[in-house]
Design a protein around this nucleic acid. Structure first.
Lengths: 196, 196
DNA sequence: CGGCAAACTTGTCAATGCCTAGATTTGGCG
DNA sequence: CGCCAAATCTAGGCATTGACAAGTTTGCCG
């Protein structure tokens, strides 16, 4: 940290973003202060505004980045159950992104970049559901099956991040617990391909 | 509004609380300002502090009230599926409470009243799971079944409040959609005990 | 080399949270 | 009835913050 020799920071946008993620992950979004981020980056108090316009702009950028990361993670999923596991893993690995993504009052809901990233992530979600064998959902509306799977993964992830699962599941590995839940609810009474 | 005739407000605590719920429900917790609430109640800017100490104290009170309301709602549930529906209904009817309840960075996590209320709500949740017939969960650990049901209901409620279900389920009644989900996932393939 | 736009700084203003001291009212108790 | 203590509310002040409006420096491109 300390004194910068160059007038230009070089990569202030990224520096502010990562500092913001750090603060949000440890103290929550409400503790975020643009001036504090500026201090951490060693720049003047108004410098971040040039990259993000204002507080809402910064958080919108965080959410956008989050949806893109989520889209990548879901894109690598083998099947729906795996997609759920990756969803939970994403929340655990990127708690700051996750929190901001699903708190619409923190960002500009009409931001075009945000909407596009949201769309990309939504596509991956729907793609995961499309690969479902009919047995798992008993031939019901695939949109419903999608909402069901999304709700389960999202609820588990949210409860995990809000420290509400520390009682019930204790020390166990969250991913493993979620895998069990998915097995429990999405009964694969249709024959699965062998292996694994 | 404007001039109050009495020096004492009479029920400032409740007035501030309901005003806070109004603001949170429409603009989110981040838009909450103690001074604004004071203005709405027609009192001086420091009056609310006497009842809630500070911002975190006010939000802690909101969360506490929320967990108590939730405990009441869950207490009236007939079975686990009904408890889930009531959970979703609670979130829809009390969006401000719900948002604050599950955002630990907004309140004092060690507040005794809050912890007690949380405990009461948790008891009702566990009670609902205890009434499960073995078939629904295929004889698995009841704690796991509880986490599964909670995750599903919580995820659905959260996605609903963050406006993420407006695409998939459109105009349909959320409660009815959730009922379908619960029927879909918690397959009652085991014979139910007659009479309830 | 000239200029121009982006990146950053400095200064300012209103609003907020929180603290302290003082004013008013209420309720209780002799 | 009188009086005191606690509860409730007011008033003022201070540090911090977000947002805005100029200026400054830097890199780049013709």
């Amino acid at each position: 940290m300390s004194s910068r020799r160059t007038y230009h920071h070089g990569d202030l946008r990224q520096a502010v973003l990562t500092a913001a993620l750090d603060v949000i992950a440890t103290e929550g979004p409400s503790a975020l202060s643009l001036r504090d981020l500026a201090r951490r980056a060693g720049v003047s108090h108004a410098a971040p505004a040039h990259h993000f316009k204002d507080r809402a702009g910064l958080l919108t950028a965080v959410a956008t980045e989050g949806f893109d990361l989520l889209a990548v993670a879901l894109g690598e999923a083998a099947d729906l159950k795996d997609a759920g596991v990756r969803y939970v893993r994403f929340a655990a690995d990127h708690p700051a992104h996750f929190q901001v993504m699903f708190q619409p009052d923190l960002h500009r809901p009409d931001d075009p970049d945000l909407l596009a990233a949201k769309e990309r992530a939504g596509d991956r979600l729907r793609a995961g559901v499309a690969g479902l064998p009919g047995g798992g959902t008993r031939g019901t509306d695939p949109r419903l099956a999608g909402v069901a799977a999304w709700s389960l993964a999202h609820g588990f992830a949210t409860l995990l991040l809000s420290h509400n699962l520390e009682g019930p599941i204790g020390e166990q590995d969250p991913e493993e617990v979620f895998r069990t839940l998915a097995r429990l609810l999405f009964a694969d009474d249709a024959p699965q391909p062998p292996g694994e």
